[in-house]
Design a protein around this nucleic acid. Structure first.
Lengths: 330, 330
DNA sequence: CCTATATATGCTCAATTTAAGTATAAGTTT
DNA sequence: AAACTTATACTTAAATTGAGCATATATAGG
């Protein structure tokens, strides 16, 4: 009836999805743990209740040790505790509970050493990048195999539930693609056995019918780090719309087009250029510096900086980009 | 440089903020733990890695045991792990890490037994209820004592930082009241020693100057449960705007005015009635049942039900109530 | 029945915001 | 110089929002 008794055999792991934007691409910082020969993972480490005053402090300590990178903006994402997310657990290890964090850094300051390296975010989620239109993999591979997974369910209500979920997550059957539902989509692919972790986690070979799919559904990370990454991307895509997070990723001054490219890199779609400028100007998110950019192609652009005061003026300052991405098949 | 080593002395506690709306008031379910003579708290219990397959399953188990209530909608909020949030820890107990959840139930089905009881949410956050205009306590008590706390800081930059934070959180100095920043406000009051937990947690008497304030800054809950509650209210206020969560709290059919009252109860402000109807109708959130309500006062109202299909049609279906509440002093 | 009062619901109207352009300016590349 | 890039100003129609008026249908009290 109360909080008597104590849990045992729990270990808390802190993991960080560290994001930067460079070359118009969203990047994520990865480390290659010594014990894993093949796969890399997010910077992470166990929470030490004796040494760490707070969870976030523990995370910062681990990250600085593993990447020699100092984190600025940090935000807690989610705590994952499902059984058997880590194969080690089957061998009698303690139950790992992992607290995932999202961190944003302004520029890529670490070199790609053997220890850590920046990777393109969409390497892990190829279906999330709609900047050049709907990713072909959706129609060629994902849709048919998900349909097969629907048919695979035993009962009619089960099939309906599955169909319902994939329609919602992927916008099949007339719905719209919602760029924030990154985690929903990843979890469906996981349940359908269409990402490699699904088989790795249960220690089995992937079913024959899916062996041809797995090489195309993104690169694998250790444990549940790809799930944490999916959570991070979803959160970030949602939050840039109502908080000025994007400026945590930009240099101190930037052109409006650079800003637009950064937003597009994260949100995975294209924006109407003229309306984008009007938007950020009208919301008071930026102010001109009076300086002109070292140009890249055409007419030189004016340099802008983030207007910090905006957080006082508006309840939800952010780049309120239209939620819609170009329709599927259109 | 990796995930070697294991933490020890950690116990994970699962806590639920269970919300219902009745009599136009938001309610929260509380239990009175046997060992605490004076204070009640949220339903909670330790996570058992051997018995609980997932964190959420553990939570549901504890809640059903403590409240004989079956939870419908459940969502994870945040994981709290700061040192010394629980006084027990100073006595050498293990480091408690608590995972907070938000749960929504449709009606109040448990009776108020000695074990559990429904309490008005705003009993714990009197400054959050703006339905009858700005709460007087803001100007009479909170503002002056927060100003004193600003002056209390040692250095000028510290004072500026504090002033900045309270301006943002409370909308002082010309800013607007953002009804979602519930946690920011609670944490500031905590840091300023203006809620009773602040002194309880460090095991000291409250400073003389604040003794008169504490009886008016809301009722106390055990451990950090009021912080979890603040997180829950903030999340709920934010989320009803873009997800149809409000219907998890409504009976199967309802009048539009009942729906409006429920939204007002949670968001803590008043809405324009005609525009509210237009909004929910135009967003396709509800559909008429054709039946007429057993009326309460004036002309009988039509009964509506939630249109589940709406989640397919719009990327962010929710009651997009205007973020603004009536201006302070206006 | 008549009146006051409460709620429900339909409708207007102006201001603002949004989506999607056209047009023009000012550079670089060939 | 012509072709091409990128930047920026401006237009226009449609949609949304905020505020309020007007009317309908009930109850309660004289």
């Amino acid at each position: 009836m109360s909080t008597r008794g104590a849990a045992s055999g729990v270990v808390i792991e802190l993991s960080a999805a560290i994001v930067a934007v460079s070359d118009e691409a969203p990047k994520i910082l990865l480390v290659r743990p010594p014990e894993a020969i093949l796969q890399s993972g997010l910077p992470c480490g166990p929470f030490d209740p004796a040494g760490h005053r707070t969870l976030e402090e523990g995370l910062r300590t681990w990250v600085e040790e593993q990447t020699t990178l100092h984190l600025g903006y940090v935000e807690q994402l989610y705590t994952f505790g499902d059984r058997f997310r880590d194969p080690q657990e089957r061998a009698g290890g303690p139950r790992p509970v992992s607290v995932g964090y999202l961190a944003l850094v302004r520029q890529i300051s670490t070199k790609d050493t053997g220890e850590s390296a920046w990777g393109d975010w969409y390497r892990y989620f190829p279906w999330e990048d709609w900047r050049d239109g709907p990713p072909p993999i959706l129609d060629s591979l994902i849709a048919p195999h998900l349909e097969a997974w629907v048919d695979d369910a035993n009962t009619k209500p089960d099939r309906n539930r599955r169909q319902e979920r994939i329609n919602l997550a992927f916008g099949f059957g007339g719905g719209a693609w919602d760029n924030e539902r990154v985690l929903d989509r990843y979890e469906l692919l996981y349940e359908a056995g269409m990402v490699a972790e699904a088989s790795l986690d249960v220690g089995r070979e992937p079913p024959a019918g899916l062996a041809g799919v797995l090489p195309h559904t993104g690169a694998v990370l250790i444990k549940d780090h790809r799930r944490i990454l999916a959570t991070a991307l979803g959160r970030l895509r949602a939050k840039i719309k109502y908080r000025p997070l994007i400026f945590e990723l930009m240099p101190p001054t930037f052109t409006l087009f650079q800003l637009q490219r950064a937003v597009e890199a994260l949100s995975g779609g294209r924006l109407h250029k003229q309306n984008f400028r009007r938007l950020v100007a009208h919301e008071g998110l930026v102010e001109p510096t009076g300086h002109i950019s070292g140009q890249t192609g055409g007419r030189p652009a004016e340099l802008f900086r983030f207007r910090r005061e905006v957080v006082h003026e508006r309840p939800a300052p952010g780049v309120r980009v239209p939620v819609r991405v170009s329709k599927r098949g259109g």
